[in-house]
Write a protein that binds this DNA or RNA. Structure first.
Lengths: 349, 349
DNA sequence: CTGTTAGCGCGTTCAG
DNA sequence: CTGAACGCGCTAACAG
């Protein structure tokens, strides 16, 4: 491979001059500049960023550490991150933790070894370990999607509490009073905040919160399915379900279909997260759409501002609003409540 | 930041000894080994991979360059790549080209600068430029999902021709003879191969190929929508549509719904690409499911084998079979051709 | 405007 | 079994 030295030889100048021409730093006479540029072209010279960054201490690369890129919400975040980073000359590495704190630490260590300039993290848990590691190496971190107890960290997320509130308020507005919730693990802020929003909406509507209607599990299809089946066994019956994310919603939908419970006739269903356009032809679910792309983009911009020194020194927390989109999975509760022994007509989901 | 020198000082040995202990290369007495390890722990020492790789000429990082990570098919590929890479100590950078060859070249150059060890590429076009660039830097490339005219390149993909054939054979088996196709750009091999499979299935069934029923556009929802509307205007009418990917299928579905054409009663629909479980509760479309995860995993393994010297020197082309999954979007053609009074039955997502 | 010197942090010689 | 010297490719810092 050609190095800067080869270019210097060919152009008959010193390596330093080549460096200056390439980076546009310092002066160079038009003549030598031209000679260098020609040599670069002739040799097909590509600078070695690894060597460059060994000196400059900056690799111009970011890392996005999330739970699972296969989740459309995170996919969209990833796209936002990548667009913002590429626009400013940064590359992005990605890592999937599957919500495991040990995987997360392992990746973070690997990325620290590679001297990444900054990390965008969707934390798998509440431990402060990741931040200590990054802090020790003075690698800035921006936390995405979730709250953490560590102070002094930049955060970008959607307003889970308000979103959940809006979703549940929509249900109470339709006349529902028995509303089940299926949410994620207790140690993830989005799980907690969405339950908090749910409780606030109920309280505002003058409805007592029944803890038996709140199920914590995980943000997965299986959780949605299992917990929905549990909710169906409760008496007096639930007339609406609030799923804390899209996977849970689809699991719940599957359980409802199996039980021949029609949505929205016999059961209303609302959820966080909309599917991107192009992944369905005819959206059916009433959702709280999170601005996932913007979460990714804003977070990356925040991080890049810090890295480029443009950033404020003060901590920044960006909370983006979600959008309630009412569709066909919600309706007023049936006049005659569904009973455990009732016979159902065919489901029309 | 602590360097290997700091560890050496603290342990009272030379940097070389530390290096040997850390990398498990060469000998070290148990006593010194212990001292070094303690120093590493006390200092929270993390090796600098950038410096290391300046020497070793290997960064232990791969790049995945695809059209759009937001497409579930590529998302799943990305996951397969990442899993395979992480298992062998490699990190992965990703880049979205949006099918633009100039973007692709720009990224490739950026990645070459960063001295990535290898590239997994979903080529945006048929130009040989990307391969020349990588070849000049002796960076191995594995081509994913698509064929390229360049010889000597490893490739991993699903069998588009056979998959399309199976899908269309399913339709002819049901009695369809007027089958429309909507596919991607003409310079992408998957577009072409799927049309080829379509034509073979028709020919085998003794049906003449009508070029008017074949529409090239792009792998997008808009293309599916627009071209489906065109196909609906044709006489004698088409009784089935083959969409070359999921986005096209959803666009077509939208056009059908607007035109009050019921699927599958008045129109059958088949497509490439299944949606991952968890993104729908009740799959409706008859599809040719591609093993996207395996495409990513196998491609990464192939590349890693080459990098680790385990790989064969000969070129490898892996063609994975897809799976025909028959669901509810296909049925025999209506006995009475579709008329204006048809009622569209909602197709649940 | 241009060249020289001196590392960045590590691993590969080659001597002890 | 251990250490000293050197260089990977590049760029601050300082001459000239």
């Amino acid at each position: 491979m050609n190095t800067i030295k080869d270019v210097a030889n060919r152009a008959g100048v010193s390596t330093m001059t080549v460096s200056r021409v390439i980076n546009g730093s310092g002066y160079a006479s038009p003549a030598t500049r031209a000679r260098v540029e020609q040599a670069v072209a002739e040799l097909g010279y590509v600078p070695n960023a690894v060597a460059r960054h060994l000196r400059s201490r900056r690799t111009k690369t970011l890392a996005l550490v999330m739970s699972d890129i296969t989740n459309p919400f995170f996919t969209t975040i990833a796209r936002g991150v990548e667009d913002a980073a590429a626009g400013r000359g940064y590359a992005v590495m990605f890592a999937n933790t599957d919500e495991s704190e040990s995987e997360e630490m392992e990746y973070l260590r690997m990325l620290a070894e590679r001297q990444i300039d900054g990390v965008l993290l969707v934390p798998a848990g509440g431990s402060g370990e990741p931040y200590r590691l990054m802090r020790a190496r003075s690698i800035p971190v921006v936390v995405l999607d979730r709250r953490v107890s560590v102070r002094q960290l930049d955060e970008v997320r959607c307003d889970s509490e308000a979103g959940a509130h809006d979703l549940v308020q929509h249900l109470t507005g339709l006349g529902h009073t028995r509303i089940g919730v299926i949410t994620g693990r207790r140690n993830i802020s989005t799980s907690i905040d969405r339950v908090a929003g749910y409780e606030r909406a109920l309280t505002e509507a003058g409805i007592d919160v029944d803890p038996g209607l709140i199920r914590y599990d995980s943000f997965s299809l299986a959780a949605g399915y299992d917990r929905a089946r549990e909710l169906l066994a409760i008496a007096p019956p639930v007339t609406a379900i609030f799923a804390a994310n899209n996977f849970i919603a689809f699991g719940a939908l599957r359980a409802l279909r199996e039980a021949n419970i029609a949505v929205p006739r016999d059961m209303s269903l609302v959820t966080f997260d909309d599917l991107p356009e192009g992944w369905h032809d005819d959206p059916f679910l009433t959702v709280l759409a999170q601005p996932a792309y913007d979460v990714g983009r804003r977070a990356a911009e925040l991080l890049l501002d810090r890295l480029d020194g443009t950033g404020r020194s003060k901590r920044v927390v960006v909370i983006l609003p979600g959008e309630l989109i009412v569709r066909r999975s919600t309706a007023p509760p049936a006049a005659v409540p569904r009973g455990p022994s009732s016979v159902h007509a065919s489901a029309a989901v």
